[in-house]
Amino acid sequence: MLDWLDEFIWILMKIGFILTPLILAVAYTTYAERKLIGYMQLRVGPNRVGPRGWLQPFADVIKLAMKEIVLPSGASKALFMLGPILFIGPSFAAWAVIPFDAGLVLADINVGIIFLLAMTSISVYGIIIAGWASNSKYAFLGALRSASQVISYELAMGFALVSVLMCANSMNLGVIVSEQSGSILDWYFIPLFPMLVVFWISGVAETNRAPFDLPEGESEIVAGFHVEYAGMAFALFFLAEYANMILVSVLTALLFFGGWLSPFQGIPFLDDITQWIPGTFWLLFKASFFLFGLLWLRATFPRYRYDQIMRLGWKVFIPVTLVWIVVLALFLKLQWWPFNG
């Protein structure tokens, strides 16, 4: 009789199982960022709250939670509040289709990639609404920049995804990963290397991270679209940005680096002795590597200008991906493809 209730509770629990570690991961990504960039910049980063600064993220959360959310005069209240919610909602929802191990996925749908693209597109509305509702010129400029940037890079990212689909013949992320099984040589980063580069850079641009962080452009438009937000409303943007960073890293690992598959697959001895390591570990290990890359980029590069970012997206990435897709299609069709797929 209460089957639907059982199922409902079970789904809620699953969501909890995904979101709780995710939020913790976000908290410690901020800590890792501050610490890593600190060491890259000859300083030590946070080290006061708790042993070696381990409790710093909690101190930040408490501080933000205690702060007043200031509503700017002339701001549209409903939209102002809707902005952060619309930004964080999709960035969490996207995690529904991410498989953490074989079969370990909340929603094993066949259009996983389409769902992901849809979710990342919806979060753009959050940015635009937040920037527009703030009634501030800096926020408005930031929102416009962000919207155009995310839309252009979504195209390049979409084409990069298409090439993965062509190889895997599926839009289900679980199937894409299992198609890569065999050995490390079967992972898609080898045949699709140009696509990996495009995907990764587009991913950095999608998440508005340095060197593509001009929607926030500290030194130009102060903090961009969230300049008027304080307290928890700002924290939601912050949380979503970091959740997106982790998502992009996990996606790169899933699509190009064999997801949860062990890198020792197919190597006789090593494979046997590393059999006990769970697939989730490998996924997170690979994702952390890309996450580290994101932080590294931030410490190294200057920021692009608005028109340069557009030029890179439209004049470089999109043509490259288009050509590569045609080439890839020819190879696959004529059966010249030396890799599985």
Binding site: I37, M40, Q41, A210, P211, D213, G217, E218, S219, R298, A299, T300, F301, P302, R303
Partner: peptide, 8 residues
């Protein structure tokens, strides 16, 4: 550098 975004 900081203005142009090279924080380090």
């Amino acid at each position: 550098g900081l203005d142009i975004g090279a924080m380090t």
